[in-house]
Design a binder for these strands. Sequence first.
DNA 1: TTTGAAAATGAATATTTATTCACTTATATT
DNA 2: AATATAAGTGAATAAATATTCATTTTCAAA
Lengths: 190, 190
Amino acid sequence: MKLKDDKKVIQIFQAALKLVAKKGLSGITMGDISREAGIATGTVYVYFKGKDELINALFAACRENSVKVSFKGYQPQMPFKLAFKHIWLNILRYKLQNFEECVFLEQCYHSPFITTETREKALQLSAPFYELMMRGQQEQLIKSTDVGLLLTFIIGTINELVKQTHYGGITLNRSKINTSFDLCWDGLKA
Amino acid sequence: MKLKDDKKVIQIFQAALKLVAKKGLSGITMGDISREAGIATGTVYVYFKGKDELINALFAACRENSVKVSFKGYQPQMPFKLAFKHIWLNILRYKLQNFEECVFLEQCYHSPFITTETREKALQLSAPFYELMMRGQQEQLIKSTDVGLLLTFIIGTINELVKQTHYGGITLNRSKINTSFDLCWDGLKA
DNA sequence: TTTGAAAATGAATATTTATTCACTTATATT
DNA sequence: AATATAAGTGAATAAATATTCATTTTCAAA
């Protein structure tokens, strides 16, 4: 008996991500994906019931990955600003290095593929970020406004920075990264 | 002789925007658009050669509109911070009230529909924003860093705020709008 | 009012794309 | 090594979608 090959799923995912970043969610077909992954079209259907299931699974995988990576190396005993910058940089690095995932996630947001269920599961993943910001407020280091507003502010600055970097509007370097962090931090600080 | 009806183009555009915001660029068909616009499928082809041309035309129209609206009521003699807040609010209001246009623009960014030509024309439209920021720097009111970085920061915060507002993550009111502006301004100020 | 040129129509057609399935291949288990 | 079971294949089929076109309707100009 032959067993399903986890590597195949990864191949399929990576092919889909690459194509979505290049052509958008509207521009990819199952044929494209299988070709890019180097397998037969039918094989994709061994791993996923259809296009919908494939897209939903990839969406879930990307969301989980993004959260996991963001908190990598975070130690609660770090001083807040240091911890915050650590995570801020993690997120930035993740988004720069996994731009395809980010594009995919953004495109999915307004697509008929993603089910309400998948969407809700994704939302629950932001809990750790809320906790982090509340810690900063307790230590009176950052403004004591609606945490949702603060997170929106933070994520917004990073997202746009990544987008502009990838489209050549900005050439990022160490100094610009620090400047961008300072823009964000100066906005947040109490 | 019957003449082409400008209102039809607007009907088609609005139908397309509504559908893209609801289902994403990947979820719309020419049939959907014509039905939503209340006209026959063939009629769409009287106004546009095909789907590609329709999407490109809509993209260009949305970009132009967004810039025009952003600078509405801007008087160069206004004190900088006031002028800046005026425009900041214009952009926010525009994006909130024309969410469908924003979604459409975002989705187009990574789609096979938009041609390089359309893309380049869109880029040129950001010139007035650069000038505004340079004025603020000359008056030593905002940080003297790369203007592209500052604009990215500003637009990012607004974009994410709008997105979260529309997806129920945030319920915006006057106070939250001011808080968000302050986050942005405190980040920018020299 | 008549006319004709162009818009509007939507069923028919062409094209693209998702999905299936009869078949082949690979490999765990015996 | 033999067997069985599931993966892998890709051409064939089904389904969805874009586009065309013969026909009808509209309306500006004569």
